[in-house]
Design a protein around this nucleic acid. Structure first.
Lengths: 209, 209
DNA sequence: CGGCATCCTCTTTGATACTG
DNA sequence: CAGTATCAAAGAGGATGCCG
């Protein structure tokens, strides 16, 4: 990217991360941790491969990403955020908070990856009943299932499943997120194809701010 | 900008404000308040005029900027951030905080506008002696003088001058900011062309975090 | 002047194909 | 798997012209 050439920290930041795709590459590394090249491609549907390699090189040049040669049996290169790179998390969080207002457009043809849930869940969801025993909620939206764990006042997400979830939700992105955020009633969600199995009372425990 | 087409708030935010220059236009409106077209041009050295008008139209289309027809005698259009647009401030602050690490490169040929100081000053400077009487510090760097007011634990900046400042600093951007942030000693700053008039003890009252 | 629109050139992006 | 090479299309940058 051509530099803005301004003696201003915002402009300097944009000189470094203002290119198209750059911040989304960082999003992937923040959410997924160390990634192989193809992990990144899967998390960035639509990116051209030449751009991905170019962005990674630029991020490396700026000291935000490090390339690590994984030892056998993996024997591949892993991309990892440096401590400096991890300091982009507040930027990503601020962007996510701002961007939620543009989400509700229900076009439906958009790509979805389950790990993208991690930001909104940790930003907006609260455990409304910290005294109650921990509970788990399994979500099936797109590529992979994810688990939301709630208990002791904390809410967290991770990819994967759990042996005996208290509730399983299955549906498309807008519907599941609408239900989680309380913007959608259970009956409306069901009308939009949501399938729920287990204790839907768990939903009332989650508080969206 | 072409949409990333991802069901993710960060991607949505970047769909809206990820274009080149867009966030800097918002920076100007946040720092300067309502702006005429030419105010924006002055605050955005290097922008092509067609891009500025295009960005303003896009921001308007997304509901982040409003066009207001100022009544005579001004009789010009003013650009103002909407409440939604003002919610980009956390994004700009996060970017500024991240971008400071890329500032020290002292190339020297960069554009500078005094109002750009507002973010770093309000983010990083603290009044180290809240009990002491309020004091004022006038800064002459580039285009216009600015005033830093410190007192009662608060630090603020505004453009303009003050009748009897306790201290006047004159020099280039890196030097003055280096002095304010404590990264530069007074003698080093003087060697780099800084001219100070008044009570330099005031500098020790300012704390940089 | 303030507020753009147009034209032209140059750079960046996106899509696809190909390679060690 | 991890990229590089190629090329058409879109976007950015710069100059200039127009109009109230």
């Amino acid at each position: 990217m051509r530099s803005y050439n301004q003696y201003c920290a915002v402009a300097k930041a944009l000189d470094v991360v203002g290119d198209r795709w750059t911040l989304l590459v960082v999003r992937e590394l923040l959410l997924q941790g160390p990634c192989r090249y193809t992990d990144l491609q899967r998390g960035l549907p639509g990116i051209a491969t030449n751009l991905l390699s170019e962005r990674l090189r630029e991020l490396e040049d700026h000291g935000l990403v490090q390339r690590e040669e994984a030892p056998p049996p993996v024997a591949t290169t892993l991309y990892v955020l440096t401590p400096d790179g991890r300091e982009l998390e507040p930027v990503l969080r601020a962007l996510g908070r701002f961007g939620t207002r543009f989400i509700p457009s229900p076009t439906g043809d958009e790509a979805f990856r389950s790990h993208w849930l991690a930001f909104p869940v940790s930003e907006f969801l609260r455990d409304g009943d910290p005294e109650a025993p921990p509970a788990t909620l399994e979500i099936h939206i797109g590529d992979q299932p994810a688990v939301i764990e709630v208990g002791r006042g904390e809410v967290s997400v991770r990819l994967g499943t759990v042996p005996a979830p208290d509730l399983v939700l299955e549906g498309d992105g807008p519907t599941v997120l609408g239900l989680l955020s309380g913007m959608l009633e259970a009956t409306d969600a069901r009308r939009r194809g949501l399938r729920a199995q287990g204790s839907t009372a768990l939903l009332r425990r989650l508080e969206w701010s």
